[in-house]
């Protein structure tokens, strides 16, 4: 494997966004790119990352390999990279280590690290292609704000989407709260728009602790997409350039 990223910031942000949710992960490398799928310890949430080969330049992967990496270790090494450093990942066939180099675009500084790999026996889940009943695309900062504000009151949030809009409601010991958003097009800045596409109304309840955690990915994208259907996991997607993505799935709370 040899994969060169123009900006180390992208990998730094991705790892930062998932490291509190999942610890030891296989980075599955093949000629289409680098993928990661992992459940959190309690098996409530699933992280699915895809960094397409087009996000790297150049990208070369001659044989499929799984790089078992401890994300705490990776975070320690990535801390040594500046956001605008050029990052290159390298691994040999049947590797013991993954090699990372960080090149400063402005100076002749080159740093190089090896991280020991782990043998991780990770089960892959089959994520079905789902036609979601409701898809909401909103500013990622708005979604972060909603989850943060409501998590101060309650452990869970009900998300209801109707043709009127989307409503986030919580009930807690001190009282209750809600935030409603309507479809809204911001003509000056499309990134601030709220788009709602609905085929049937949905109402689901989710743990806010996980949603707050997902919002650590907000720095990766101005926009976030929420996909909901009754009685299936919520999909929270942060799109990256070149069709790469970071997706989180969250199992709904079960009603009485």
């Amino acid at each position: 494997l040899e994969a060169r990223l123009e900006q180390a910031a992208m990998l730094k942000r991705v790892v930062d966004a998932i490291k509190d949710l999942v610890q030891d992960c296989n980075f599955d490398c093949n000629d289409s790119g680098i993928a990661l799928q992992a459940m959190d310890n309690s098996h409530v949430a699933l992280v699915s990352m895809m960094l397409k080969s087009e996000s790297f330049s150049p990208f070369r992967c001659d044989r499929n390999i799984a790089l078992g990496i401890n994300l705490t270790s990776l975070t320690k090494v990535l801390r040594a990279a500046q956001g605008d450093d050029i990052l290159t990942l390298k691994a040999e066939d049947a590797p013991d280590v993954v090699n990372l180099t960080f090149e400063s675009p402005e100076s002749d500084r080159l740093s190089e690290y090896d991280i020991k790999l782990m043998d991780i026996d990770q089960e892959h889940l089959g994520i079905p292609d789902t036609e979601y009943a409701a898809t909401i695309t909103l500013p990622s900062s708005e979604f972060s704000r909603i989850t943060r504000d409501l998590s101060a009151l309650s452990e869970s949030v009900a998300i209801e989407c109707t043709k009127e809009g989307v409503k986030f409601t919580c009930t807690g010991d001190i009282g209750n709260g809600s935030v409603s958003l309507r479809q809204h097009t911001n003509v000056e800045n499309d990134a601030k728009s709220v788009d709602i596409s609905l085929t049937e109304p949905v109402a689901l309840t989710f743990s806010l602790k996980y949603l707050v955690n997902f919002c650590k990915a907000a720095g990766l994208s101005d926009r976030v997409r929420l996909c909901l259907s009754n009685e299936v996991p919520l999909l929270v997607e942060y799109g990256l350039s070149n069709n790469s993505y970071l997706r989180f799935y969250l199992a709904p709370k079960i009603g009485d």
């Binding site: 459940m39 098996h43 089960e123 889940l125 743990s207 299936v232 996991p233 709370k253 079960i254």
Partner: peptide, 14 residues
């Protein structure tokens, strides 16, 4: 976790 479904219930093992 009480009242919380598991993701594996929805997405079968490959």
């Amino acid at each position: 976790i009480e009242g919380q479904g598991s993701i594996a219930t929805f997405f079968g093992k490959k």
